[in-house]
Design a protein around this nucleic acid. Structure first.
Lengths: 206, 206
DNA sequence: ACCAAGTTTGCAGTCGCTCCAAAATTAGGT
DNA sequence: ACCTAATTTTGGAGCGACTGCAAACTTGGT
């Protein structure tokens, strides 16, 4: 037992707060739930909530922040000789088959998406996360290529890659929100994904 | 006289509020100025401030919102036969020569940029503006190409185009904030811009 | 049992922002 | 000049996120 009673209690209250918050958010929407209510539901003082979560939005995203390094892993985990674009294409197409949660293709991620869409604060946070992933990926690419600080190529590639996956994910979510069945979304998305990555590889000459 | 006294006064107080706000923001930073202070400086009640500007950030951006349709004009104003990418390349390179404010190459836009960087609220708003421009440009491109709703190409092109110009602008600002002279920034930026747009046209095959 | 360290809590306060109803100002007609 | 209707401004009350601080409480080690 490498976890003392103190640490266990901390973890427990943290999880209790997070769980109660998510429950309330799911049933009533992010903006319609006050931090005081979350605190009451978790049987804890408001200050304690802010003790664990620096801002209200962190109650919602929490684990989402651990996903910010995901693109870097995709880039690093590619086969020898494989280009970065091909690695992302492969990763996304795999996710399309397995409905991987990493790209928001998960069943039920539409509820999630609607909540984000309905709350300005959550939208802002989501974009900040996107930006962070962009700079992290860019840094990884720059390191790998040994690019100097004046070279914009890593930043450009990171931005273009993440924006394609982002737009593909958003497109899938639009379909889900429109009530379409996944099996009718998947083939269409697959076509669009192929076109999108082709566009990345061969350029927009039009 | 197509402007009655009522309308003139409205315009005047609006401008007074905006001017006073900008002055305070410039000298003390966005987050260190309270709306109440702005109101006092403009000799107006706090409610009146919110009467003209829906949120504090609007005191800062105000006219910036009128620029959200700018990319659409670049796309629409291109020469016959000219591709969209070429139009944006031309527009940006022109702006590089004239230090056009539209891309934040303006002298003094570094102060502006630092203020945005220092305030989470302003950063969020700036990104929202970026997103709006993206969807507007995408809509224009989709209309022109007659693309259906399932086609992601317009959205992808819009995103890629605006992200290149965005990253180029940010790069320029980084140089300015580092204290570099404009004449040393320009040639380097020109090289990067050429590479960036080449990347867009010919793709990221690596 | 006791002390030091860490955790929770209550309280007071700031700031952005909203709602509402009462004043003040202006426009237009007589 | 006068009255009325529409518009603008204002004050006040209040909500919700968030901070800072000091007091109470809990845990770990001696």
């Amino acid at each position: 037992m490498d976890e003392g009673l103190r640490e266990r209690k901390k973890r427990e209250t943290r999880e209790r707060i997070s769980d109660m918050a998510m429950g309330l958010f799911m049933s009533r929407g992010f903006d319609n739930v006050t931090v005081a209510e979350v605190a009451r539901a978790a049987d804890v003082s408001v200050n304690t909530v802010f003790n664990y979560f620096p801002a209200k939005e962190d109650l919602f995203l929490d684990r989402q922040d651990q996903v910010e390094g995901m693109p870097v892993e995709v880039a690093r985990g590619r086969a020898p000789g494989e280009s970065v674009v091909r690695a992302f294409r492969r990763d996304f197409l795999d996710a399309l088959e397995t409905r991987d949660w990493r790209y928001g293709l998960n069943e039920g991620s539409d509820v999630f998406a609607r909540m984000v869409a309905d709350s300005p604060a959550l939208r802002a946070r989501t974009r900040e996360l996107h930006l962070r992933r962009e700079t992290l990926l860019a840094a990884a690419l720059a390191e790998e290529a040994g690019a100097d600080d004046d070279d914009l190529a890593p930043l450009l590639m990171a931005a273009h890659l993440l924006n394609t996956t982002r737009l593909l994910s958003e497109h899938a979510v639009r379909g889900m929100l429109a009530g379409e069945a996944w099996e009718t979304i998947r083939p269409r998305l697959r076509v669009q994904a192929d076109k999108a990555f082709d566009l990345l590889e061969s350029g927009i000459g039009e």
